[in-house]
C-alpha cells in the first residue's frame, strides 16, 4: 500500500511539469505586454525596456520557463509581477478561505445527494424519484454564477439577511456554500442513484434479504457500500476542483480565495501569481484523487488486493 502511494506521488512530478509548461506558454501567447502594463501608462520606452530586462522577459520563453522551473524545484515561486511580494504570500492568505468554502460546499452536496440518490434508487419511478431527478437535472443545468447572483439579489439586496460578498464570518459562507454545494449535489445525486440501481438488483442483495436482514440495513449497509465507488470518485473530483478555487462563484461573491486571485492575476497578466496558483491547484487536485484511490481500498477489499500487487 505505501509503495502504491509512493508511486503515485512520484507520478505527480511529470504531471506538474506538463501543467506548468502548458500554462506558461498559453499565458506568454496571450496578448498584452507585461512590462508595459507594470510600468504604467506614462512610462517611456526606455523604462519599459529596463523593466522587461529586469524581469527577464526579454529572453526566449523556453529559457524563462526553465528558469522558473529551476526556482520552483527549490521551493521558490518567485514574486508577483503586480505586487512585488512573494507569490506564496498570496497563496497562504487565500488558500484557507478556499479550503474552508470547499469543505462546507462538499458537505452541503453530500448531505443532499446521498439520501436523495439512495431513496430515489430504492423507490424507482415513484413520485419522489421523478421529482428528485427533475430537480437534480435542473441543478446540473443551472450555472453556478447565475444561482449565486439570484441569491444575492434575493437574500442580500431585497431581504438584507446575508452579506453579498467577502468573508465576514460564518454568515458569509452560507450563500457560496449553497451555490457550489447544490450544483455538485445534482451530479452526485444522479451518480448515487444509478450506482445504487445497479447494486440493488444484485444477487447478493437478494441473499441479504433472504437472510432476514431488515430492509434499511440491506440498503444502507449491503447495497450502499457496494455502490459507493463511483460516488466517491465523483465526490473526490468535485472536492478537488473546489479546492483549486471555484473561479466563477468566488468572483460573484468577491470571495478572497484562490479562484478569484487567479482570475485577477490573469487580468493583470501577473504570470508568476497565476502559475503559483495553478501549481497549488494541481497538487491539491492530485492529492485529493490519491486520497480517493486510497479510500477505494477501504471500501472494496478487491481493490486493496490489487494495490498490494
Amino acid at each position: 500500500m505505501s509503495r502504491y502511494v509512493l508511486k503515485r506521488l512520484v507520478m505527480l512530478i511529470p504531471v506538474l511539469i506538463g501543467v506548468t509548461f502548458l500554462v506558461y506558454f498559453i499565458i506568454s501567447l496571450s496578448p498584452g505586454d507585461t512590462a508595459a502594463m507594470l510600468a504604467g501608462e506614462d512610462a517611456d520606452a526606455a523604462t519599459i525596456e529596463a523593466l522587461r530586462h529586469e524581469l527577464g522577459l526579454d529572453q526566449p520563453v523556453i529559457v524563462q520557463y526553465a528558469k522558473y522551473m529551476l526556482n520552483l524545484l527549490q521551493g521558490d515561486m518567485g514574486n508577483s509581477y503586480k505586487t512585488g511580494r512573494p507569490v506564496t504570500n498570496m497563496i497562504v492568505s487565500c488558500f484557507p478561505n478556499t479550503a474552508k468554502l470547499a469543505f462546507w460546499s462538499i458537505l452541503v452536496a453530500v448531505g443532499i445527494a446521498l439520501p436523495i440518490g439512495v431513496i430515489s434508487a430504492t423507490k424507482q419511478y415513484s413520485m419522489f424519484d421523478n421529482v428528485g431527478m427533475v430537480v437534480a437535472l435542473i441543478g446540473v443545468a443551472t450555472p453556478n454564477f447565475w444561482l449565486g447572483l439570484m441569491m444575492i439579489i434575493l437574500f442580500s439586496l431585497n431581504l438584507g439577511w446575508l452579506p453579498s460578498g467577502g468573508n465576514k464570518g460564518w454568515s458569509s459562507y452560507i450563500m457560496p456554500a449553497i451555490t457550489l454545494g447544490t450544483g455538485d449535489a445534482a451530479l452526485i445525486t444522479r451518480m448515487t442513484r444509478s450506482s445504487m440501481l445497479e447494486v440493488i438488483r444484485a444477487d447478493y442483495i437478494r441473499t441479504a434479504r433472504a437472510k432476514g436482514v431488515p430492509e434499511n440495513k440491506v440498503v444502507y449497509q449491503h447495497a450502499l457500500r457496494n455502490a459507493l465507488i463511483p460516488v466517491v470518485t465523483a465526490i473526490g473530483l468535485q472536492f478537488g476542483s473546489l479546492l483549486g478555487g471555484a473561479t466563477l462563484t468566488e468572483t460573484v461573491f468577491a470571495w478572497p480565495g484562490i479562484g478569484r486571485s487567479t482570475v485577477d492575476s490573469i487580468k493583470t497578466k501577473d504570470t508568476t501569481q497565476v502559475l503559483g496558483n495553478i501549481v497549488v491547484l494541481t497538487i491539491t487536485f492530485s492529492c485529493v484523487n490519491l486520497l480517493v484511490d486510497i479510500l477505494y481500498a477501504f471500501i472494496d477489499p478487491r481493490i486493496k488486493a490489487q494495490y498490494k500487487k
Binding site: A202, D203, Y204, T207, A210, G212, H222, N226, D300, P301
Partner: peptide, 28 residues
C-alpha cells in the same frame, strides 16, 4: 407484516441460490 417476514427469512426457512459467484456480498 414485514418485521415478522424478516424474522422468518434465514431462520424458519432459508434459501441457497443458483450462482455462488454473485450471491455473496463482495465487500464483507
Amino acid at each position: 407484516p414485514q418485521k415478522e417476514l424478516e424474522a422468518v427469512r434465514g431462520h424458519l426457512a432459508s434459501m441457497i441460490f443458483q450462482d455462488p459467484m454473485t450471491s455473496l456480498n463482495p465487500v464483507f
